[in-house]
Design a protein around this nucleic acid. Structure first.
Lengths: 173, 173
DNA sequence: CATCAATTTCGGTATCGACAGAAACGGATG
DNA sequence: CATCCGTTTCTGTCGATACCGAAATTGATG
């Protein structure tokens, strides 16, 4: 079995992008492959299609499952595990947003809160610096809340919202 | 001259985060330092404060200037260059959004468009796969347009919009 | 035009993460 | 209990990137 050229390009590109998004190449490639595949795939098929080590596939799938991006399925009379990705792009979006919040925003929030508190007792810190820290904290807090609220917005609403784009601003005067 | 503990923590954390955001540690540290600094700093001061090589500071600042995050200023009777960061967090946000679009979304868009076109002529590609590619393309296109529109929304409106969060959904029924 | 300070360029080195491949382990099934 | 399937762990290698420090360059000044 072999990938078609278009699918191969997609998978390779996704792999590269994955490295920018906090995971490694293989994890992202597998996700792309499963996303495009019309049927669930087995680990050994993935090994074949992507030419990666079995151990690598095993740990990568584990990571994808932990993210909630990939689920395991089975076939009657077949012991082997089959895997498939979420197929709805808006669902994918939500999951990825949640991941990013957890890995980037949350630690930054903690840091900023600690900083904001610490500088209260630091006389040698310039008031301007203190204000900058407060501003950044406020910004990250707002962003964080926004991420959270997005989680519970239904897909259909999300779609409409995104398509509105900057048009939405006419509601906030 | 030395950093206060809080500022040091901030700078170190920002450096770590920077690596997740597509730049390297030093670049992000310098940006953080300049953001917090109540006055513009010279390259040699940065060398001092962050204990990095002079050459490193030079190239990092160049990168930050290219992004539009840092500007050069001067002092009367002093030949040396002084640098300061944008101080408005919403401005920073806008600039970073633009960067991300350029480095992540645009290449992905090209790839998806090419894929979508290619699969038209690939008979061996499953129709389901073709649809998945189209869906992803549509999603990234929407996201991309959203990023663009955000650029021209004034800061005050952005603030209100963000604070509304999911509350905005009451407008899209 | 010689000098001096600052910037930029250019190897070289160190560090870090990804990944392969082997080996051991676990656990369900006939 | 032998077999099949999968996971986990370990070691070694490879490639990429960050960064330092030296050398070359620039550019203002007397």
């Amino acid at each position: 079995m072999k990938l078609t050229p278009a699918v191969e390009r997609y998978v390779l590109h996704w792999g590269e992008m994955g490295t920018r998004w906090g995971t490694n190449r293989t994890v992202a490639q597998i996700q792309a492959l499963l996303y495009l595949s019309p049927r669930p795939l087995r680990a050994d098929e993935i090994v074949d299609l992507l030419s990666v080590a079995r151990s690598n596939v095993s740990t990568s799938i584990r990571e994808l499952q932990a993210y909630g991006l990939v689920k395991m399925t089975h076939v009657l009379g077949d012991r082997r595990d089959y895997f498939e990705s979420l197929h709805d792009v808006w669902e994918l979006f939500r999951v990825i947003i949640a991941q990013r919040k957890q890995r980037e925003l949350n630690p930054t929030l903690s840091m900023l809160r600690k900083c904001a508190e610490d500088v209260e007792h630091e006389d040698q810190t310039d008031p301007v610096t203190k204000e900058r820290i407060r501003n950044m904290l406020e910004f990250v807090e707002t962003t964080s809340e926004w991420y959270e609220k997005i989680q519970s917005v239904p897909t259909s609403t999300l779609k409409k919202l995104m398509r509105l784009g900057a048009g939405i601003t006419k509601f906030v005067k």
